[in-house]
Structure formats: C-alpha cells, structure tokens
Design a protein around this nucleic acid. Sequence first.
DNA 1: TTGTATGCGTTATCAC
DNA 2: GTGATAACGCATACAA
Lengths: 371, 371
Amino acid sequence: MPGRRAQLKRITLVDVARESGFSPSTVSIVLNNAPLSRYVAAQTKEHIRKTAQKLGYRPDTFARSLRSRRSQTIGVMIFDISDPFCMLILRGIERALHATPYLPIMMDAHNEQKQFESYLDMLMERRVEGLIVVANWLFEEGGLLAQVRDSRLPTIVVGRDLSAEKIRSVIVENEQGGYLAMEHLYGLGHRRIAVIRGPAKLLDSQRRWEGIQRFAREHALTIDGRCVRELPDSLDPTSGFEGGVALTAELLESGVEFTAVLAFDDLTALGAVRALARAGRKVPEDCSVIGFDDVPPALLSTPGITTIRQPMEDMGALATEFVLEAIGKAQEADGAEGAGGNGAGQSAVHMLAPSLVLRESTQAVRVEIAG
Amino acid sequence: MPGRRAQLKRITLVDVARESGFSPSTVSIVLNNAPLSRYVAAQTKEHIRKTAQKLGYRPDTFARSLRSRRSQTIGVMIFDISDPFCMLILRGIERALHATPYLPIMMDAHNEQKQFESYLDMLMERRVEGLIVVANWLFEEGGLLAQVRDSRLPTIVVGRDLSAEKIRSVIVENEQGGYLAMEHLYGLGHRRIAVIRGPAKLLDSQRRWEGIQRFAREHALTIDGRCVRELPDSLDPTSGFEGGVALTAELLESGVEFTAVLAFDDLTALGAVRALARAGRKVPEDCSVIGFDDVPPALLSTPGITTIRQPMEDMGALATEFVLEAIGKAQEADGAEGAGGNGAGQSAVHMLAPSLVLRESTQAVRVEIAG
DNA sequence: TTGTATGCGTTATCAC
DNA sequence: GTGATAACGCATACAA
C-alpha cells in the first residue's frame, strides 16, 4: 500500500476552494448543483469538480445538515423485524431508496409499543425527513402515531390499513385476496371449507372475510358457521402459528367435516398443517390448506404451502416513493405558508393486487361432489 | 388541538441559558455531565436541568456531532437481512445498544458485494464510530473489509469466522455443534448417518465436520464416505434449501443406506425433508433429520426440525459489547499517539456454546443394532 | 465555580 | 459570474 497516511486529514470545502483557486461559496454552489450554479462558467464547474475529485473531497454530513436543516434520512420504524412479513417490505424500501440521496434509519420496536414510542422519539430527534412505518398485524395503533400525525412529518404505513386513523397506508387488496383463495379452493372442488379468520379487530382481517363471502355468494356456496374460527387478538408474535394449531385442532375435534382450510396467513396455515398431521390427516391428500402472505417458511416447509401472495417488496417500494414525493412537495411549498396539506395529511389507502402462488398444500378434492 | 404552533421554533442551548440565567457553557457542561460538571453547584445543576425540561430542550444531533466529531452511531452492515439467521442477530444488537446512547444505522447488502461496498462507504461517510458486520455463510470477504481494517474503525463480524482475515469475530462453537449433533443421533441408535456438509471454502463448515469426526472417532463409528455430500460454493440465498433437496435425492438414488441425515444447517435439513418426502420416506419414522442454527422455519415446519441452536441473539449482543468496548478504549487512548492497537486490530474469535433443541424430526432408530 | 470567545464545515445572503 | 461574510447549535480552552 503506497503510503496513504496523508488521508488522515479530512478534505474540506475550503481545501477544494484553495486548491482550485475559487472561493468556498462557488465551490459549494457548483458541487451541489445549486440553482445559482446556472450562472457559473462551464469551465469553472469542470475545474472545480476535477479538483474535488482529485483531492477526494467528501462533504461532511453533519455540517451540511446543521446548516441546511435537512438530514437526508428517512426513518423506518419496523414493528417486528423478526416477522418475515416485515422483512421483505424492507427490501422494497431499500431498493427504492437506493437511487436517492436518502439514507434509511431503521429501528426495530421488538413488538413493543413502549419501544416504538421511544424510537420514534429518537427518529424525530435525528430529524428524519420522512417516516415509513412497517407494521404487521400485531401492531396496535394506540394513538402512537398521533404525535407524528400533527408533526407534519410525511408519514406512511405499509402492511396495515390505518386510513381510519387518517394515516396514509399501502396494503394489499385484502378483499381480492380472500376471494382468490376461495376461488382456488372452489376450483379444486372443495365445498366444505373451514376458515380461520384473523383477529376481529383487524381491518385487514375483515376485508379478507368479505372477499371470502363475496365469492361464496356469487357461487351459491354456504359457509358453515361451525367451520369458521377466529384468531384471538394477541400480542404474541407466534400467536399466528399457535392459533392455527389450536383452532384447527378444535375444528377437528368438533366433528364438523371439511376438506380444506383457508387460513388467515401462512403461519396460521403452517399451524393448521401441524394440527392436521397430529390428527393423522395428511396435507394435501386428506385436507387442503391455503395461506396468505407468501413468507419464506411457506416455501420451505413440506408440503410447500399454497398461498395468496402479497407483493411485499413492491409495497415497500411504493410506500417509499410516496414519502419521497411528499418530501418533495413539502419543500416546494416551503415558503408558501398555510394550514393546507403538504401531502402528509391526506389520508388514503393504496392497494396492490395479490396473486395466487401454487404449491403442494392444495389439491383437488377426492370424492365430494357438491355442497 | 390546543394551538401547539409555538413549538415550531426549536429550543436551543442558548434559550435554556437565557431562561435559567446561566451561560451556555455552564448549561452545556451540566446537561452533558461533562467532567467539569463536578465543580458546578448542585443547586445550579438542578435549576438548569429543570428549565431544560420545562422548555423541552432537545440537543441538536448535528451540531453536537459536528462539534464533537462523534456521531453516536454504530454501523450495522447486514449481508442479507432476509436470511433469518441474520435477523435474530439484529435483535441482539438492538438489545445491547438500547441501554447506550448509540444508535444503530443498519444497511442491508442484499447479498451483493457491490452493495456492501457502497453502503460501507456511506457508513464511513456518516462517521459511524464502530462497525458490526452481520454475515451469513454466503458472505465472501473478497478484500471487502480491507479498507475498514486499516481505517482503525472498531469492527467485528458476527456469524462468520473471519479471524483468518484478521477481523475479530463472534461465532458459535462449530466443532462442538457438530459433535452434539452426532451425539444426539448416535444416542438414538443411528449408526448409518448421512452427512451433508457445508461448502468446502467455509471455515465454519470445516469445524462442524471436525466435530462430527471427533465424535465418530471417540465412538469407533465409521462414516461411510458414500454417505457424505457437500453443498456447493454458491451465492444463491436459497442454495441451502435447494442443495439439501438435491443432495438428499442423490443420496437416496445412490442406494447407500442411512437412517439419519445430519444437515449443514436448518434450510438444508428442510430440503432433506422435502426430498425424503418425495421419495416416500417419512420423517422421522423412516429417517431422522437434524439441522443447525435454529431459525424460525425449523420450528414452523411439520415435523419441527430438531437442531443445534446457535445463540444468535447473544452473539449479536456480545459483538455489540465488544465494539462499544473498543470505542471506549479508542477514546481513552485518544491523545496517546502510536501505531499500537486500539482494540480494533486485535484479531480474535469469540465462541459461544451451541445447544441441542429437540423437536420431532429425529427419533430412535427402528431396527438397526450396530454399525 | 461560571462566563467569553472561538471554531467545527457548510450553505445562504448579499455585495462586487 | 464570483467572492466575502454571516450564521447553523454546540462544546471547549481559557479567562475571570
């Protein structure tokens, strides 16, 4: 290594100015492509850029942020990073942010409201310019986002429909998803379908149910009330799986017949498989199972779980674009005073289409003919 | 909303000074608990703290960092956040960092060396005070960390043994893990054990194999060479699972007999289960399977995968402590010039003990008596 | 014990 | 077209 010890001293804007023979202001203007740079001679620009490059100049983030009041960061609050559902959304966020000068600052709330609050505080303190909340279904918005809402910080939540709380959301089309799941099962000949619904409190859970019912209505299929179970409102991260096990076992013991289980999500489906196996019923031969989400464990288990896929990466990317857009607008309308929305306030819910992912946990029903 | 519009103006140190009647310096000293604060009257401190509280003063991170040259952040480079293995380590890091004033800045390299490099750059630019690299086995240290190494930035890698590259590492005791797995299988009566080794290049893979061999030696068990397969050196994230499927299928077709499969990791084990199922062999009745790591999918699949657990959360926490410690030392020895180590250079590998997690994928061998 | 003055590296507002 | 100069908010050496 050719003695790079000189690198120890940081190169500043002033160094570049001195070396290039121009003033710090000009250098700053050029290097930032500031509006004023329109009036700088092309030759000057070229020269300044060259020397900056030569010296290996890197702007100091802190000085820049201090002066410009802009942090160039987006806060990403993850409600539970160990939930595979959240993870894939992160990918999308990172992907969308990659082309921009913004850096994500991620925090994991460990499934705890308390943490969520304190981290939110930290993020605000670090002056993030936007906020993306990655929520799974355990997330309880107990006024947590109230402070954010009227802080005018461009905010969006992905993974949960919080439009009722006046927070812009990006989610999957749950109703459509429920419909698709039913359609698939029905197409395979299933008529006695057990449904494990999500927690009642969950809006997304409602929607899926609506989709299920719509399909049933359209096909004159009645869903036996005894075949429907509901996941409890729980704060336990593994409650989906355990709920699936328990509720399926319940279903099995109740004696009511069914040839397929439509589970709220993949973990629930995995739980159903477990319970069925325990009862000696093989999947899919003796009973089909369909999940929702398409998280990795659904692919890795045997049989692979047929599921309704949420385009999580796209959801993350979309949410990111919205936030960036809102930040842009807020900047434009910066001088323009007024109580009017800077884009942060306008609550709306953006929905992406789900899709069926065929794997091995569902198959045509064996004997049954019709309901 | 009761007109909170006054909040728009940020409270600064000067505001607190004015309001409390003391000078900015005194206020700064008190609020930071700086060394000099030892000489400040208790009453003064009290008063200053009260008014700071009253005004809702929050120090400006950027100004503080600009001045003090300290970012109060730790860079966390995750090689692949979608790998459940990495995820749990993150939990540990976050937990350990929580009690400190340090904020983690996480970046996900998406399994790409290119990304890794550019993000590393970003982290350095943001002046992180320490670096934790969360690596899975796909991570290739192709000189990636060279720049970090001689940047004197306290660095540690968790999840991979990179001590050979002179980088401090926190890992599980792989040799012991391999031994434990064999011990478990042997204890259940298995004598014809198929082994799917990890990639040859991987040091961790070697160590596990050594543990396996040690157990075999100690118990006069010979491992049939025909029963041993090796995962390819691959950069594909799902290669573990697919490798497991393919190699197990190969094993099955080769006609050689075995009553158990000892897989390199949980994904490989899951792959083995899949291949066995396809061949009509049930797990664990017809063949036992043991994994390594204890990642969530191992728990969620049916049967649950018996595995050797890596204490990933503890590994993350330990790594974090080391980095914090190194930062502390570097600060102390700040004036003390010298080429000598500030703790960052001292390469060493710290190992945590693995443990057996019993689930349903292994059971006593049916008939076989001895090798 | 406490206050004053200075500078961290940038950007922005003016003059020239 | 370009250059002085003044903040941004904080921490610290030094003075009192």
